[in-house]
Amino acid sequence: MPQFFLNKRLIILLVSIIILVALIGFSLKEREKLTWPEQFVKDTIGLVQTAVSRPTHYVAGFFDNLKDLQNTYTENKELKKRLDELARLESDVQMLEKENAELREILDKKESLSDFEPIQATVVGRNPDRWNELLTINKGTKDGIEQDMPVLTANGLIGKVKSTSQLTSTVQLLSSMDPTNRISAEIQADGESYFGLIEGYDKDKGLLLLKGIPYDAKIKKGQNVVSSGMGGVFPKNLPIGKVVDVTPAEYGLTQTAFVKPGANFYDIEHVMVVKRSMVKPEPEDMIDDEEEEL
């Protein structure tokens, strides 16, 4: 028996397993903030990453440009065709915006759920093992980034900020499996809109799952899905994707729509972190008595 305890290796193994379980437990619980040593390490590595990734992206971009040159002619033709439509669209938008502003003035409603301030950022790193899809971007709390802010590319929503440090922050993509990764979304059907929650990702098909749509909603293929702004953090009308398929959910009480994300989750370089202009409601406000009056 004494020999068993004197076995140094066994004791080291047991102690390290205990530490392992403790550390994993510590990092899995929902944390408001990273500890300062973590933030420090992330910032330091982030600086090195920025220094290294800029030149490599530049070189890679050069080769991409060469490839693009090959189909410039056909692209140019196509784009010229679109340009005419764009001019018309632009005048429409201007007119509508003006009208909207005037109407808002009449109603005395200054803020809207869809107002936001964008913060531009560049991706400097990505989790190589890709079990949980995380990106590192080169903006942090110093630039006004906070936890849970939505992150977009030019084509649509890609995820939300998982944690922040001074100079960098970590973005969790919509494609990672995390039960807390939920976004309140809205399907824009003609004239009507249906609400649901983006919950989960089908890895094989590359589609997002939009759950909890009312069973009698008439949803068609190709309808747009945008964020609804009801979650408290996300502004309204951020593009997410298009409906591809609809199936009744378990027990048939609701429907689940498969949404093809507008953004590509593999090829991300520049992103935009979105700060909602409208104040986020505090949980205490929502259970207040006054709520019923509103």
Partner: peptide, 16 residues
């Protein structure tokens, strides 16, 4: 440890 802190945010897996 560095891998866990910077990339995965779950401390312990690669450390071990």
């Amino acid at each position: 440890l560095l891998f866990d802190v910077v990339y995965t945010e779950i401390i312990g897996i690669y450390l071990f």
